[in-house]
């Protein structure tokens, strides 16, 4: 629903990072999208293609957007087991405890950018 503003944030962050590192051109932006982040990769790609295609996109103009989908992982606070959350069941598969902490898979990060 708001993939447009996500695409804008990515563009802003990539612009900042490129400036810091002195990159004049960014060819690829690599994302890590959590399975539970709520982000729809196809819509994000579509929004990205619109926003990165124009001059205002700066060094990220025309950059490819690629992503790895990150499964949801959690840790049990009772038995310490780390497990992959399947079908959104957050009970520990080892001891059945409901006291679990999510480790990853809930957000979207820019992992890296490729450019020169």
């Amino acid at each position: 629903m708001h993939e447009m503003s996500m695409a804008q944030s990515i563009l802003d962050l990539v612009g900042e990072e490129a400036a810091k590192a002195g990159l004049s051109r960014v060819d690829e932006v690599r994302l890590r999208i959590g399975e539970m982040s709520g982000v729809v990769p196809d819509s994000l790609s579509f929004c990205w293609s619109l926003m990165s295609g124009v001059e205002e996109a700066g060094p990220a103009r025309g950059a490819a957007l690629t992503f790895d989908l990150i499964p949801v992982k959690a840790r049990c606070r009772d038995c310490g087991r780390t497990f992959r959350v399947e079908n959104y069941v957050f009970f520990c598969p080892g001891c059945g405890s409901g006291e679990t902490v999510v480790l990853e898979g809930r957000d979207m990060t820019i992992a890296s950018i490729v450019g020169e």
Binding site: L23, D107, M108, I110, I113
Partner: peptide, 13 residues
């Protein structure tokens, strides 16, 4: 070159 970034897309919010 590949540059590690590791920033949340929603970090501003």
């Amino acid at each position: 070159m590949e540059l590690e970034v590791g920033r949340l897309v929603l970090e501003a919010n």
